[in-house]
């Protein structure tokens, strides 16, 4: 599948430093985004550790499929999905250990969202309140469930979604990389088609820009990079209270056929699906 990617990370208008971090690996079709937390520079350390370790683990696994998995293999998911989970568990260990070593980094942590596309299968994994959206046929859908206290309360029916958005506890998350020795990683798989778009973003975007504002931007005939720039700009226009990071992956239709193939297919006819 052909893919076009855009990405942008911005400090925003309020914060001094950018604790978000992302990675794009086009050969693996792997996309990772971490939003770090912790005083001074600790958040940056945590998110960098998170991204680097997951990326490294997946790259090693690409050359050595028998590379040991961290944590239990979940047979209901494909190998790439399990590999993402394994990378995330390793990064959790690393951040947790690093946090315990120095006073300056104690209590640091990070969220993570990771996505990988293999043929038409999208593997996703996440911990925390960063999000992954899928935009298919003009419809924007959030594929991840925030591990935040308020969203947990919404799921339990204790408060409404509107109350959650207004809550002053919106910044409390239930899970994060580095918080504990082990971490529970949410996994999922989706079938994706040409024309679909996958958006990874930190909460600096979604706390200020609503889903209803994101959807039309993705529908514009812009390149993914232009769409990313616009999303960040919009979050800054609406306050820019936190670091804003977006990665947009667009699945492109296959290249046009050569005249020969077209002619051959029209002769043989039928509503057939052809090998490429």
């Amino acid at each position: 599948m052909r893919i076009a990617v855009g990405a942008r990370s911005d400090t925003g208008l309020v914060r001094q430093n950018n604790e978000d971090r992302f990675a794009v690996d086009l050969s693996l079709n792997l996309y990772i985004l971490c939003d770090g937390m912790g005083g001074q520079a600790a958040g940056e350390v945590a998110s960098k550790l998170g991204v680097d370790i997951i990326l490294e683990h997946c790259r090693q696994a690409a050359t050595n499929p028998h590379l040991e998995m961290a944590g239990a293999y979940q047979p209901e998911f494909s190998a790439p999905t399990n590999r993402l989970a394994s990378g995330i568990r390793l990064s959790n260990q690393a951040i947790h250990e690093a946090a315990g070593q120095q006073a300056s980094t104690s209590g640091m942590g990070s969220t993570v969202v990771a996505a990988e596309i293999n043929e038409n299968i999208l593997s996703i994994a996440h911990v925390g309140d960063s999000r992954i959206y899928r935009c298919a046929e003009g419809e924007l859908r959030q594929l991840t469930q925030d591990h935040s206290l308020v969203m947990e309360q919404v799921r339990r029916g204790l408060i409404t979604r509107e109350e959650a958005e207004q809550s002053e506890l919106a910044n409390v998350i239930m899970r994060a990389l580095g918080a504990e020795e082990t971490v529970q990683v949410d996994l999922d798989e989706h079938w994706v088609n040409e024309g679909d778009q996958i958006l990874l973003c930190s909460d600096g975007l979604t706390r200020l820009v609503s889903d209803a504002q994101i959807a039309p931007i993705l529908a514009e005939p812009w390149t993914p990079q232009q769409a990313c720039e616009r999303l960040v700009e919009l979050a800054n226009e609406q306050g820019g209270e936190d670091n804003i990071t977006v990665v947009l992956v667009r699945l492109l239709p296959p290249p046009p056929l050569s005249r020969w193939k077209k002619a051959l297919r029209s002769i043989l006819g039928g509503n057939r699906v052809w090998p490429n």
């Binding site: 937390m37 309140d129 910044n171 409390v172 239930m174 918080a179 936190d242």
Partner: peptide, 13 residues
């Protein structure tokens, strides 16, 4: 918690 409103916090649970 509200005093640290803009920083993300993980529950120590």
């Amino acid at each position: 918690l509200p005093s640290a409103a803009d920083a993300t916090v993980v529950l120590d649970t």
